[in-house]
Simulated scan of single mutants.
Amino acid sequence: MQEQGQIHFPVVDFHCDALSKMAEEPSIHFKGDHRLDVTGERLLEGGVGLQCFAIYLSQKWGKPRFEQVLRQIEKFRGGVANTGGLRPLRWREEAAGLAGVLNDGPGWGMLSLEGADGLEGNLFYAELIFELGVRFLGLTWNYANWAADGVLEKRNGGFTEKGRELVEWCNGSGMLLDVSHLSEAGFWELAELSKRPIIASHSNARSICAHPRNLTDDQIRAVIGMDGRMGLTFVPWFVTDRKEVVPEDLLRHIEHVCTLGGEKHLMFGSDFDGIDSWIKGLEHPGHYPSFAELLLRHYSEESVKGWLHGNAVIYLASNLPSAPKVE
């Protein structure tokens, strides 16, 4: 639990993979089960007022199917929102009031889809997950699918015709778009196609750590230029190539993005439950308060609050779709 006197700013975390773990092993529970990094208790301990839950279909499950997407949505609705008391975030009107309530009572959860593979090339399925509360879409995981190439696909292709149709549908519906796993060619094509600011929900700076999942300086500048957001991630091998990684190692990524003009565009996307090794001292959401104290030793309170929640909340309040009017 929170130590007496510890800084406890509210937090928005833009990426975790708890749902895929829960789908793979039905005995895992969101409350009190430390087979998960992200649990209801740890979100409360860390002051995480909004956690984004990715729907990720593991390659080891075989051919991606829409049924697997629906199963994780049901895990969120029943096993996370109901059991954990999290309120689903769907509309900009809800996001507009977040800043004042992130520390009050039960937190919020938001759904994302990590890779369009499970939509099976069917835009009706995209419409359906939108109706069920999914609000941002990572078009690929690391490899090619029916929509586009992922960042580890050697040919580095962009979008297919069906992929461009999906982007057009997202532009019209208000589904936000995430570039964290997209190929570089796809990134630049999406930067032209997207009518809303894009996000990189869980990526770091490639100039600091030369992993292909991290963004180049030109990509970071493009996200900033669109008034998008970049969620620095706690994946150790995206932070540094040293064997033991500590929270201080993230400061180099923060500094670098800020030198590119991104102070107001930074947020965090931990990737908890998507990793099997951790930054020492940042092993689960309950450690966010000590991370906030580290940040405050180096940066202003205004900047730290922005990175922990403010920049993300402003983005969501500006870019989520508006709730339909009740006649």
Rank of each mutant, 00 (worst) to 15 (best):
168 E>M: 03
159 F>W: 07
126 A>D: 02
100 G>L: 05
109 G>K: 05
169 W>D: 02
144 A>C: 08
171 N>D: 11
100 G>F: 05
111 L>H: 09
83 T>L: 14
147 A>F: 02
130 F>P: 02
128 L>F: 11
150 G>N: 02
76 F>M: 13
154 K>Y: 01
91 W>Q: 02
90 R>W: 07
82 N>A: 15
140 T>L: 03
153 E>I: 00
121 G>R: 14
160 T>L: 08
123 L>D: 09
134 V>R: 06
163 G>I: 02
118 G>E: 13
162 K>N: 09
78 G>M: 06
107 G>V: 06
155 R>C: 05
173 S>Y: 02
114 E>F: 03
147 A>P: 04
181 H>S: 09
146 W>V: 04
184 E>L: 06
174 G>H: 07
155 R>K: 14
112 S>F: 12
186 G>Y: 09
104 D>N: 11
176 L>C: 10
97 G>Y: 00
96 A>I: 00
110 M>W: 00
124 F>C: 04
176 L>M: 15
152 L>K: 13
172 G>N: 11
129 I>P: 03
142 N>H: 10
137 L>E: 06
186 G>E: 11
104 D>E: 15
133 G>D: 07
169 W>G: 01
184 E>K: 11
183 S>Y: 12
123 L>A: 08
145 N>F: 02
151 V>R: 12
102 L>D: 09
86 L>P: 05
96 A>V: 00
97 G>R: 04
103 N>F: 00
94 E>Q: 15
114 E>T: 09
175 M>C: 12
116 A>G: 14
164 R>I: 04
149 D>W: 09
181 H>P: 05
186 G>P: 06
90 R>E: 14
92 R>G: 08
100 G>T: 11
182 L>Y: 04
105 G>D: 13
94 E>C: 05
90 R>S: 14
131 E>H: 08
155 R>L: 06
159 F>Q: 03
74 E>Y: 11
95 A>K: 03
173 S>L: 05
128 L>S: 10
133 G>N: 08
84 G>I: 10
99 A>I: 05
161 E>A: 14
165 E>C: 01
125 Y>K: 14
142 N>R: 05
160 T>S: 15
120 E>L: 07
79 G>F: 04
91 W>G: 01
77 R>W: 12
148 A>K: 05
115 G>W: 03
157 G>H: 11
122 N>M: 01
116 A>R: 04
84 G>C: 10
158 G>H: 07
184 E>D: 15
173 S>T: 12
84 G>A: 08
99 A>Y: 01
181 H>M: 04
92 R>S: 13
115 G>C: 10
101 V>T: 13
185 A>H: 10
